[in-house]
Nucleic acid binder design. Structure first.
Lengths: 225, 225
DNA sequence: CGGACCATTGAGAGCAGTCAAGTAGGGTGG
DNA sequence: CCACCCTACTTGACTGCTCTCAATGGTCCG
């Protein structure tokens, strides 16, 4: 049984149903950093869950500008925004060696029709996605956004049982910048200042969170909890 | 039968089911400008659909800062982000004399369990909400955001059969500013510049869209279509 | 008519963006 | 194994968009 089940779509299913659910799951991988899971515009047939590794999603607008829409950890679902248009709305790209679970959406729908727990879990996942993105509205300083990003990542890692004192950022600065809506140079400067102020220690893509209290305070505005 | 049914949650239901669906709908109102539909933290028991008028939703963070999360037109659903926490995550506030439909979520869930069309419609609505908010990520200029706001509103009004040459903005500048993440003074200045450039004509809260082509072009970056 | 509220306009400041130069790993080929 | 290169990252200087603060103008309403 997948160790992520508790955090993932099958959350809430009993033993029997969980086994039946696993029949509709195809494990895909291992993918390598740089592999695509799907591409913007592809026909939507399945939801994907990260099983191991990390995935980023992004879209390209008419002018060719890239827009990163998310970084996904194990247990998180990718492709939920494609349900209504039946086409994926972005590219999904492995940032690291990764395993993903492919779950036919037609079959998910069938099962959700039979099992109230699954319907509920689907709705809850979508709903928390909405609540999540609502938080990011509003104008925040570069410091607040950066702290928000780090704390959010740390919390998600903790939920998954990883230590979150030491974060390894698999994505490049440019990706973080794009995701947070700022320039990559600003990421560098903010990280440096955070380090000078004793909030974190940075070594390339490795970030140690040294003063969680103050980081939380900074992030509070963004994460609104 | 509600004229919004085509755009709203019962979309896709046949005549018979539509009638049964209507049994779980309570019409609430008329509400007057300034009335609340629900408040942040209230127990979530029902989804609301706007039937007539306009509703804004907003939350207040720990520091007392207001954050507007949406403006809702007839046929649009309010409260979807509360499903996972079973508490409303924001205040819902009538901007004008309005009617809303209260739909018990427990009953929606029951019906969705029986009717695939309703389950699908629920999932689609949530999914397009996600796709929608993803668009707003990224850093846009004040001009792009403003154009995006106007064009988005115009399109939604058109979908509902209203003329969209002349927009009446029921909310104050401060609300638009907050929603778009900028200062209210900037809203004034951008609207004035748009007017000077012949894109729109502004008279208080009434805005005429004069050059839809150029506005669309400006908005394109934000709305990404 | 006066007050309250909203909106506009102006002046100045500051945060973060752009441009450009410099640094540092990591990988490759000789 | 080392020199080289490429890419990612950092740092500095400067610019500019948008914010803030403050004053003014309009409109509605009692």
């Amino acid at each position: 049984m997948c160790t992520n089940a508790r955090l993932c779509l099958p959350h809430g299913l009993d033993e029997t149903r969980l086994r039946e659910f696993e029949c509709i799951v195809d494990e895909v991988g291992p993918l390598h950093a740089g592999d695509f899971i799907f591409r913007d515009g592809d026909e939507f047939t399945a939801l994907y869950a990260v099983r191991a590794g990390m995935v980023k999603t992004y879209s390209i607008d008419r002018e060719g500008r890239e827009q990163i829409t998310g970084f996904y950890l194990p247990g998180e679902l990718i492709g939920l925004d494609a349900i209504h248009s039946m086409r994926y709305r972005n590219h999904a790209f492995a940032l690291d060696t990764s395993m993903v679970c492919r779950m036919s959406f037609a079959k998910i729908r069938e099962l959700a029709q039979k099992w109230p727990e699954l319907q509920t879990q689907l709705l809850c996942t979508l709903s928390s996605g909405l609540a999540e993105t609502d938080k990011l509205r509003g104008e925040y300083s570069a410091d607040e956004r950066m702290a928000g990003f780090l704390i959010d990542l740390a919390r998600r890692l903790e939920q998954r049982g990883y230590s979150a004192e030491r974060l390894y950022l698999l994505m490049e600065r440019r990706d973080i910048a794009n995701f947070l809506g700022m320039a990559k140079e600003t990421i560098s400067r903010v990280l440096r200042r955070f380090q000078d102020e004793g909030l974190i220690a940075v070594d390339r893509r490795e970030v140690m969170l040294l003063d969680r209290i103050r980081l939380d305070a900074l992030a509070g505005a963004v994460l609104r909890d």
